[in-house]
Design a protein around this nucleic acid. Sequence first.
DNA 1: CCATTTGTTGAATATTCGTTCAAAATGGCG
DNA 2: CGCCATTTTGAACGAATATTCAACAAATGG
Lengths: 195, 195
Amino acid sequence: MSRMPEFNRAEVVERALQVFWRRGYSQTTVTDLVAATGLQPGSLYAAFGNKKGVFLEVLEAYNRSFLERIRHLTADPRPAITCIRELLDTIVEDTVSGRNRQGCLAVNALLELAEHEPDVAARLEAHNDQVRRAFAELIAKAQAGGEIRPTSRPDALAAFLVNNLWGMRVMCRGCADRESMTAVVDGILDALTHA
Amino acid sequence: MSRMPEFNRAEVVERALQVFWRRGYSQTTVTDLVAATGLQPGSLYAAFGNKKGVFLEVLEAYNRSFLERIRHLTADPRPAITCIRELLDTIVEDTVSGRNRQGCLAVNALLELAEHEPDVAARLEAHNDQVRRAFAELIAKAQAGGEIRPTSRPDALAAFLVNNLWGMRVMCRGCADRESMTAVVDGILDALTHA
DNA sequence: CCATTTGTTGAATATTCGTTCAAAATGGCG
DNA sequence: CGCCATTTTGAACGAATATTCAACAAATGG
């Protein structure tokens, strides 16, 4: 009964994500989004409402993907500590190689927008909680398997781990030397296994 | 032989700092700065060149103050671990009480501006190095005094500590519950003392 | 093949922002 | 006091920005 959209929504979101991730929210202009997505302003506004609408959908896709990645670790047959080490090592490698120095979109957005976009902040808080819970499950599994001593509660260790993850996401934007980053990873894993 | 400036530069910088800290760089308008400092646009531009000039001076003041605070810890007669715990506890209290949920100006600025303001990023990297070195000294002192075992190098432990500090500066913008934050602080101190 | 509904186009719009500048004000000094 | 260098004032300017809209195009159903 009507004309069909010419674009693939997921593709558009993915391309917008790349721009927002690299340039941040404020420094990304609608013109940037038009160039990156191939959509004209009118189509963009028809599909997403406004710039913030695009960003919210981008953020949702990013967070979902990240969270799934963490949750998959719990299903991984290898020891949990191995999975965590691999996760952290990947960040180090991506940073040192220059493959990814843009940090975490969610962390970047939280620091940039927490003050004047309360709804964005609320979503990011919720995401943070979910990440923490996912790690707590992973740690509980590791404690059950004897990899981590059950001295500390999974919640507490998860909060500690997430804190370090966010710290690394800050550092990889500004001080990307391998030595410091591996020292950090070693410190985290020592803390988890000796706790 | 000429007219004298009517404002106190340090006061103006301090007031501009409050605005930039709360709102971030992009979201702070020159109109905001005019309102906060009491200076008219012309005076502001005569004194600082432009908006970025104001911000650079603000950042310098903030970083110098923070760095001095850390360096003072090395001269504190009490055990280094006590000083570190106090530093971290202060962050927790300021966050939970709502006294300071704006995190760290330097971290916020790094994430917001690293991409498109290379000179800002360079200054922040240098600051980061100085902070790390200051903590390394503090830790070396603690190792010499037997508070921390000399198993790990001071550099490595300092990198780990700074990573957690930045992580806390992220978290205090988005997930300010006391339980998580004290869990993080406990994790940090356990890691430092048992390493 | 027409009517209708929806998507696309891209120039236009209104607003906001950083910055400038000419005129007025101020204070030190001969 | 009168000269002059400097600061202050605040309206004005141009550039950039997010958003809109009227004209056009495509697809569907009868």
